[in-house]
């Protein structure tokens, strides 16, 4: 079964062009720093979710440990900068490489031993925890005290005085994520990856090197999550092991694409937008009553799963492809 809304080929490219134009114009329209920050956070979680989507959505490999890649990217940028004075723009690139390498390492071990489904999910969770514990014990990460990146607001230093600078960085990253997803949908690599998702044994029988393909996917996914981590580090300038490697990030990373629509180009963008809007509305509705806003958020989450089993992207499809779906 092909999951959810599939904007393919030409249509997807047009949609991406639309997103690109809206994205470029948006900061000119948003006169408010609050909404600009809101947009930045939505895009940030979109990138993180897209990273998860590459592996989980297109490859069917559910990770509970994307914090492992995210945190590595964040620490690479921060530590290289603080300890070795390496420019954060270079650190940004290295963060992507670092995230990719951690992805490859974890992928190598777990795919080598044929872990699938929830076993794979739990092993990624365990790796993230191992990294958290190590980051907490190591001296060069600052241990539990954490790493603080000195405040020096110049664009050359990847710290923008104006939030618009951060916006365009994360927006560009988001576009790269979209292009990656588009590429997956239109390349041999992507086709093989999706074949593995549908039926790994069948794909193998057809001569797909499942190990290599999955390894490629997790490295790509890790690299994108690592870039998101580097962005986080530069935007907030402070990291500790729990922020970087804690389970919170891993959960956010999977929430966004599953809600939006797994294995779709725009699923993560939809998911991150809807989740943040819901979060904001819950705050408005519940006012200052402690905890009720998050409870409402959780209820909306449950309701979405009850009524939108294929994510938000699936909603659009259901209307359009109703007759076809019956056949499934």
């Amino acid at each position: 079964m092909m999951p959810s809304l599939r904007l393919s080929g030409q249509r997807a490219l047009w949609a991406m062009a639309g997103v690109a134009i809206i994205g470029v114009v948006l900061p000119l329209l948003l006169r408010s720093d609050f909404w600009l920050n809101f947009a930045i956070m939505v895009l940030f979680f979109t990138v993180l979710g897209q990273a998860w989507n590459i592996l989980g959505g297109y490859g069917g490999q559910f990770s509970f440990g994307h914090a492992a890649f995210f945190g590595t990217g964040a620490y690479v940028t921060a530590v290289l900068q603080v300890k070795f004075g390496i420019n954060p723009w270079l650190g940004f690139v290295l963060a992507g490489i670092g995230g990719g390498l951690v992805g490859a390492a974890i992928g190598f071990l777990s795919f080598r031993y044929g872990l699938r489904g929830s076993y794979f999910a739990l092993v990624t969770l365990a790796f993230a925890e191992v990294l958290r514990i190590l980051a907490n014990a190591a001296a060069f990460t600052g241990g539990g005290v954490g790493t603080l990146i000195p405040l020096k607001q110049t664009a050359a230093n990847f710290q923008f005085v104006d939030k618009t600078g951060f916006y365009f960085v994360i927006f560009a990253l988001m576009l790269i994520g979209l292009l990656l997803a588009y590429w997956l949908e239109n390349s041999r690599f992507g086709a093989r990856l999706m074949a593995i998702r549908e039926n790994e044994d069948a794909a193998r029988a057809l001569g797909v090197n499942a190990f290599a393909i999955k390894l490629g996917a997790i490295s790509l996914s890790g690299a994108l999550a690592g870039l998101a981590g580097a962005f986080y580090a530069q935007y907030f300038l402070y990291l500790d092991p729990r922020l970087a490697y804690g389970p919170g990030i891993s959960v956010e990373a999977l929430l966004v694409p599953i809600i939006g629509g797994m294995g779709t180009i725009f699923g993560p963008l939809l998911g991150a937008t809807v989740l943040h809007v819901v979060g904001e509305i819950a705050r408005k509705v519940m006012g200052d009553a402690v905890g009720l806003n998050l409870a409402l958020y959780g209820m909306v989450l449950v309701a979405m799963v009850l009524f939108l089993p294929n994510g938000i992207a699936g909603l659009a499809r259901r209307q359009r492809l109703k007759p076809k779906e019956e056949r499934l």
Binding site: S32, D33, F34, M41, Y238, R283, D288, V290, N293
Partner: peptide, 21 residues
């Protein structure tokens, strides 16, 4: 003007933006 940082730095920073407005 009450704000909830949800025990997360990023949410705290977002609340500051809201308070600013």
């Amino acid at each position: 003007v009450l704000g909830d940082a949800q025990s997360k730095p990023d949410v705290g920073a977002a609340e500051v933006e809201k308070m600013n407005e």
